[in-house]
Design a protein around this nucleic acid. Structure first.
Lengths: 107, 107
DNA sequence: TTGAAAGGCAATCATTTGGTTGCATATTTA
DNA sequence: TAAATATGCAACCAAATGATTGCCTTTCAA
C-alpha cells in the first residue's frame, strides 16, 4: 500500500544488496547478514529495520536470534501498479514470448 | 545500466508525480510541469534534472522552452533485471492467468 | 528595441540519511 | 552462575537532500 516506504527502502544500494542476499539464502540472522557489508552491525540493523518497515522483509525471533525473510509482495505490487502503468504492453509481449516462444496457440 | 540513479530518482514522491504527469501528457515544458506542484520553479527543475540524469526523462529545447519526455526504458530494465529476479514465477503465472484465464492451452 | 516570458546558475538553509560509538538486555552454554 | 553470543537502544556526526531566494541569460512579441 505504502509506495513511499517501499521506494525509499529500495533507493539504497546496501538495502538492495541485503535483499539480494536474502533472496540467495532466506531466513538469515543479523550476524550473518552483517558479514561482508563493510559497516557496523548497527548500520545493518538500521537498514533491515527500514526494509521491515516497508514490509519488504519479515522477521521471526528464534531464541536470541532474529531471522529475516524476504517478502516479494510489495515489489510485486509496485510492479503491477506502477511499472505496468508505463509499459504494460511491452511487458505482456515479453512475458508471452517467454511463455510461448513459437506462438503456437495464436491464430 | 545505472540502477542506483534510477532507484534514487524514483525514491521521491514529487518525482514520481512528475513522471505520472508526463505519462498523462508527454512533452510538457518546465512551466507546465510546475503548476500544482506546490514548490518553486527551481525545485521542480532540480527534480527534473535528477530524472534526466537517471535517463527517465529526455528533453528537447524548443525555442525558449524546454520540453520533457518520459522514457520508459530504465523502468523496464529494472523490472526485468530486478523484479523478475524475485518473482518471475508468480509474475509469469499472473500474466498467463490474465492471458488465458481458463487454462485452455494446458496439457 | 524594449519588455515580458521561459529558463539557468549559485549560494544558502533546515532536515533527513547513513553511519558511528557506547552501553544495555536477553539467551545460550560451559 | 559466569562468560560468550546475539541483538537493542540512544546519542551523536558528517554528508546528502529538498527546498528557497536572488540574479543572470535567452527568446519571443509588441
Amino acid at each position: 500500500m505504502d509506495d513511499e516506504a517501499v521506494f525509499r527502502a529500495l533507493a539504497d544500494g546496501s538495502r538492495r544488496l541485503l535483499l539480494d542476499r536474502l533472496h540467495a539464502s532466506n531466513g538469515q540472522n543479523l550476524g550473518e547478514l552483517c558479514r561482508g557489508m563493510g559497516m557496523s552491525r548497527q548500520a545493518v540493523a538500521k537498514h533491515l529495520a527500514i526494509l521491515e518497515e516497508a514490509n519488504l522483509v519479515g522477521v521471526r525471533r528464534e531464541g536470541r536470534e532474529k531471522l529475516h525473510f524476504i517478502n516479494p509482495v510489495p515489489i510485486n505490487d509496485i510492479a503491477e501498479r506502477w511499472i505496468d502503468k508505463f509499459e504494460a504492453p511491452r511487458l505482456a509481449a515479453l512475458a508471452e514470448l517467454k511463455r510461448n516462444p513459437e506462438g503456437k496457440d495464436h491464430g
